[in-house]
Each structure stands twice: as C-alpha cells, then as structure tokens.
C-alpha cells in the first residue's frame, strides 16, 4: 500500500499537523514503507480471534460522585500561552 502526496496532505490535515510542502514527497515515501511493514500482519489468519484493546481484563471502576479536585485554574494557566480574566485566548473564531 502506498500513500500518495494528496493522501499525506489529507492525513496531515486530519491530524492538524502543518508540514512543509517540500517534505511531502519524503513523508509519502516513508509512510508507504511503514505501511508495507504493517501489512506483514496479513500473513496470519486472525478471523477467529477477537481484537483486544488492552493486555489485561479490566473493568471500568466506579467511584463516589464527590468533588476530589481543587480548583487550581490560576496555577494551571501559568503554562498557557495567552490568558485573560481566567480564560484561554485564541484567535478570533466568529466574525
């Protein structure tokens, strides 16, 4: 399976990754090589095997519906690129 340049651009857009125009050809080549590697899995028949998303048999735990976290907004926002009045600032979204 190969990934052409248009597909590279589509994937990069889906992942919201800005990539340089000049790198697209390299990505196309590298990602195609990796996909060839992934397709080696086709060598084994897995029709009768169920997929697992986790190594261990886990069930989701429940907990009491109680507030356990304190509000630390000011501390957390110290890491933000731009804030104002407790809000995160982003470029204008609505004209």
């Amino acid at each position: 399976m190969s990934i052409n340049k248009a597909e590279v651009q589509k994937i990069a857009w889906l992942a919201r990754l800005g990539i340089d125009e000049q790198d697209i050809a390299t990505y196309s080549e590298e990602l195609s090589t990796i996909l060839d590697l992934l397709e080696r899995m086709d060598a084994v028949d897995t029709d009768d095997i169920s997929p697992i998303s986790h190594p261990l048999d886990l069930t989701t735990r429940l907990r009491v519906d109680a507030v356990t976290e304190q509000n630390q907004r000011d501390q957390f926002q110290q890491n933000a690129p731009q804030t104002e009045a407790g809000c995160y600032l982003v470029p204008k979204v609505i004209e």
Partner: peptide, 13 residues
C-alpha cells in the same frame, strides 16, 4: 513524532 501521528491517524481513519 509527526511520522507516528500520521501513521496513527491513517490506521484509525
């Protein structure tokens, strides 16, 4: 990291 994000995005699409 970009390569892996793109592969991951592709196989989940």
């Amino acid at each position: 990291v970009k390569r892996r994000i793109m592969i991951g995005t592709y196989v989940l699409s």
